[in-house]
Nucleic acid binder design. Structure first.
Lengths: 201, 201
DNA sequence: TCTTGTTCCGGAAAGCCCTTCCGTTTCTCT
DNA sequence: AGAGAAACGGAAGGGCTTTCCGGAACAAGA
C-alpha cells in the first residue's frame, strides 16, 4: 500500500509526499466519520494541512481516497491481531480483538453508502479484507483453540461474517439495539459455551 | 398523497400546480432510472417541462423528490393488486402481480444508494410500504388460497420479503443471475407445490 | 363575465464545490 | 552546492444547487 521503495524510474519517493499522503488518509478518516463521504475536498485538505491540489495529486478520484481509508483500517485491524496474539493470553487476545473489530466496523458506518453504491472501484475491497483479516483472526482462533479456551467448531470466516452481521444497521427502528454488546455476547459464547477440544469434543 | 382537497386555508389547490407536481414525479422517476439519483435538478425540471424554481417549490429537498417517487411506485403497485384482484382469476392475478412486483423492485435499483444512505428522511418508507403493499398482496393471496390454487402456509409478509430478497443485487459477481426468473420459479412454487386447503391440508 | 387577491411559475443570479493547471517550492542525487 | 525532477499550493474555470422576486395564471365572489 504505502511503500517507500524506489520507484520503477529509479528515484525514491519524496518524504514530504509520503508524509502528506498519510496526513490525507488520516484527515479523510476523521472527516468521513464527521461530515460523511460527501464532505468537501477542501475540508479534508485543510485538516491535513495541505492544498487541494495535493489531495487531487494523490487521489484523483474520491473513490481512491475512500479505498485508501478503508484499506488502512483493514491493515490496522490485521496488525492489531498480530500484536495481541504476541502480547496477550490467547483468550484475552481474541476477546479484545473482537471488541476492536466491532468498533472498527462501527466506525465505518459513514462509508457504508459509498461502499454499497455499486461503484466498481470498490470491487476488490472484500477480497483485500478477507485476505488480510482472515489470516489474522485465524491465527488468534488457532491459538485459543490450542489453548483449549475456545470452541473448535467455528472457522475464522464464520466469525468474521457473524460479527459483521451483528454490527449491521437494523432496517426497522429498534431503539435498544447495541451491536457491540451483541458482539460481546457472541464472544462469550465463543469462549465459554460449546465443545472445546481439551474437554473432549 | 396527491390530494386535491381544499387546503386548510380554505382555498383549493391550483390545478396547474397539481399537474406540475405529477409531471415532476414522473420525470424524476425516468431520470433517476436513467442518470441516477444524483442527476442534475435541471434535467428533471426540463423533462417535466417546468423551471427549476418550480421543482424546488414542490420539493425543497432532494429526498422529498425521492420519497415522492418511491411512494408513487408503492401506490401504483398496491393499486395494481386491487385491479388484478377484481379483473383476473385468483391464480393469474397473483402470478401477474408478482411479476410486476419483481419489475417494480428492479426498477428501483437506481434509488438504492439513496435509500440505504441512512438519511432519516427515508425512515418512514418501509412502514409506508408494508402498510400499503402488505394488505394488497394479502387480499390476492387470500383469494387464491380460498380458490384452492395456492398453498396456505405462507403469509403476505413472507412473500413480500422473499421476493424482495430474490431481487437483491448479489454481492459477488455472478453473471447469470436473473432475479425475475427466480421470482417466476418462486411463483410456480407458490401456485403448484405444497399443500393446498382444497386438497386437505 | 369581470374583478380581485392569492398562488404559482420561471429563470436569472449568487454561492458552493470540484477539478484542472501551472508557476513556485522542496527535495534528491551527484 | 548545483542541477534536475517531483511535488506543492491556490487561483481560475465550469457546473450544479438553491434562492429570490417580478410577472403570469388561477380560484372565488359579484
Amino acid at each position: 500500500m504505502t511503500d517507500s521503495s524506489p520507484a520503477p524510474g529509479g528515484r525514491r519517493r519524496r518524504v514530504d509526499a509520503q508524509r502528506n499522503l498519510h496526513a490525507l488518509v488520516d484527515a479523510a478518516r476523521t472527516v468521513f466519520d464527521t461530515t460523511g463521504v460527501d464532505a468537501p475536498a477542501k475540508e479534508i485538505a485543510d485538516l491535513a494541512g495541505v492544498g487541494v491540489g495535493t489531495l487531487y495529486r494523490h487521489f484523483p478520484l474520491r473513490s481512491d481516497l475512500v479505498k485508501a481509508v478503508v484499506e488502512s483500517g483493514i491493515d490496522a485491524i490485521a496488525a492489531l491481531g498480530a500484536r495481541l496474539g504476541a502480547e496477550e493470553e490467547p483468550g484475552d487476545a481474541l476477546k479484545e480483538w473482537l471488541r476492536q473489530y466491532a468498533t472498527f466496523l462501527g466506525s465505518k458506518r459513514g462509508l457504508a453508502p459509498a461502499l454499497h453504491s455499486g461503484d466498481p472501484a470498490y470491487k476488490e475491497l472484500p477480497g483485500y479484507f478477507l485476505a488480510k483479516v482472515g489470516p489474522a483472526l485465524a491465527a488468534l482462533l488457532d491459538s485459543a483453540v490450542a489453548a483449549g479456551v475456545v470452541r473448535d467448531d467455528v472457522s475464522a470466516d464464520d466469525v468474521l461474517y457473524a460479527v459483521a452481521n451483528l454490527c449491521m444497521p437494523v432496517p426497522v427502528e429498534r431503539p435498544g439495539y447495541e451491536p457491540r454488546r451483541m458482539v460481546a455476547v457472541f464472544a462469550d459464547g465463543l469462549l465459554g459455551g460449546g465443545r472445546r477440544p481439551a474437554h473432549g469434543g
